[in-house]
Design a binder for these strands. Structure first.
Lengths: 205, 205, 205, 205
DNA sequence: TATGAATGAGTCTTCATTCAT
DNA sequence: AATGAATGAAGACTCATTCAT
């Protein structure tokens, strides 16, 4: 009897894993599709077919387009946070400072999700919104720590610089993706490094 | 006969002016609508009605939604360029450095157009694209001039800093609009000023 | 100036009439379609095509399927009420007593609308519901008057009989439409007459 | 060998009983679901889940939604017939006269099935149709017998009155369910009794 | 038997665009 | 130049039904 229950547990667990795996698969297809077409431009048929499904199947996993998007957004910020945290964990202070840039450079499709940030995220479930903000703040906080470690700045100052850092990298990433940097002959990496160099150098001086 | 021709010229000119005026009117309506609803969300009926027209009328002035959008984008960069140029003309060097920020703060609806920059502008007519890039480069060039004037940097360095400046302000504007700055208790203006202050201060030192 | 306004008025009036005419056209198509397929079974494409329109056109006149249905229901009861009232106006007392039966016999498509009465009409706009009930009560009231005139019954009794009359005719109409009367070899008209005959005869005796 | 066969028979019988039991279970779930949502509104998943099954399982017992519906309809009339017959068997003449009303009052979910009668039952399998009509005629025949017993009417007259009785009760039940009786302050029971009272009283007089 | 994931046709609805007036 | 009714091609979503397990 005990083994039966145990077997059931294991089966349920495998089922849960499978379900999660499939959701991830859909999420990947959706990320790519949203990246190429934007939220409004992407259609469920395209996402489904990229995930290897018929349209209706998506609805077995998500309540609709919006929910997929929300999950994608949450997932994206979650991974950004993780990326920053992993850097911080290895005491790679310089890495922390460029973590957002590196993360989005490595995962360009995630960047499009930032388009959501343009029109705000008012129609997102409040729960998701709260979670997202939490991740964002946590990441910024880690960056601020790194700034303090590198420059000895006061906490308020470090917070300010952390945001400026994030803003700068956001801008660079967007301009780069929009093709406005190539056009001018600048490498995004050099621009980011220069910004960071100045930030560190200043305080050091 | 000569007077007849002259009259025609004048009439043509007035006609041209009237036409341009009407296009501007439509453009204003479109900008506001795109700002509120996004490109896909905005519909021609809404734009037309805000411009005081019936839907069909828009097609007497524009070939379609995309063309309105392209014109809007071109117009927006054109006005940004003008704003920077006007600052430069009055030798307001500090003003030039924050000109992009100030311009988009004053005209928030223009900022949404930046969403276009996310998906690139590949489907824009090449002519428009070239024109836009020209305006952008011209504006950046003026900013680089101001950087040089304020810091004595070399031309290549100044160009770099000009882009970093633009990237930073882009990032700040987007984060602000997305509500991520309020949430953290920071004022966009202070962040921009700090960035500029550091830029100037460094070189001055 | 006055003539100009007058002209405008006339044009508006004509426009209003045209609009009303088109709505009526759609309503007719919808009635027939709902009659054949039921509310859920009928699809907008079918209604539109029967009205001589493309699907999208219906939405220029109605907000959706439900609104068409509500209008149809309101219209139907309105016409029933009118039928009863017209009978009453000509002092055709006997005619009043069989007015519901005659009306639905003449307009069989209206009968299907009664299917709405099966599941109740909770999801109808309250305004429509109120209006419908008003028409129904008004019609019943006229029937009760006729009952009183024919039988000398007290008012409460007459009201009771009016409802029983309506219920009976409702039942007959439904059984007839369901093909259950033919099957048994009875003519709906004879059944209705017998009921009325008994009602009148009783009191007379 | 014989015992083996016998065993098989018994097993088959049990199997048949079990099968019938399961079908009944599904039928009950379906009846409740159709009652709440209507035929088109009810979905197989809901029916299955109410029956304690997964969707696919229903198809082991029924060929599809329509077949469930047909079986439900047949079952409903069968139970109505049984109800009338049981009354007749106890010589409860008055009870027979109100049997349809009482039956549907006791089993309101069955009433919704009458909606099928609205659109006719043309798409029902002929076999079912024939069976249903048989049950209906049998029930009406028992009612006609009761009418004759209570009033001494001739057979043709009694048949007529039986149908009128059924029609009246049908109407009352539908109006009641549609909420049109409460609205007017009448109790269905009183209306039915008045009708029957008049029917009996007349002939008695 | 039973499952339930997957299917894909079908539904309502929206909206850029056209065209007769 | 302007209108606005009409179009019809999508799009999101639902659900009866199938089938591999």
């Amino acid at each position: 009897m005990a083994s039966y229950i145990a077997t059931n547990h294991r089966r349920d667990a495998r089922k849960g894993t499978l379900k999660a795996f499939k959701r991830q698969n859909i999420l990947d297809a959706a990320r790519a599709t949203f990246d190429e077409q934007g939220f409004a431009g992407a259609n469920m048929r395209a996402i489904a077919s990229r995930a290897g499904y018929a349209p209706g199947t998506l609805y077995l996993h998500y309540a609709g387009k919006e929910e997929i998007y929300a999950d994608l957004l949450a997932d994206s910020l979650s991974r950004l946070h993780r990326a920053v945290r992993d850097c911080a964990a290895t005491a790679d202070t310089h890495g922390v400072l460029r973590a957002p840039f590196d993360h989005y450079t490595a995962h360009p499709a995630d960047l499009s999700l930032g388009a959501a940030l343009l029109h705000g995220t008012d129609d997102l479930p409040a729960e998701i919104e709260r979670q997202m903000n939490g991740r964002l703040i946590a990441a910024l906080s880690l960056i601020a720590d790194a700034v303090r470690a590198m420059t000895g700045a006061s906490e308020p100052d470090a917070n300010l610089e952390a945001i400026n850092l994030a803003a700068h990298q956001t801008g660079i990433l967007l301009l780069h993706r929009a093709g406005r940097l190539n056009m001018l002959g600048f490498a995004p990496d050099a621009l980011v490094e220069r910004y960071i160099g100045r930030l560190i150098g200043d305080q050091a001086a």
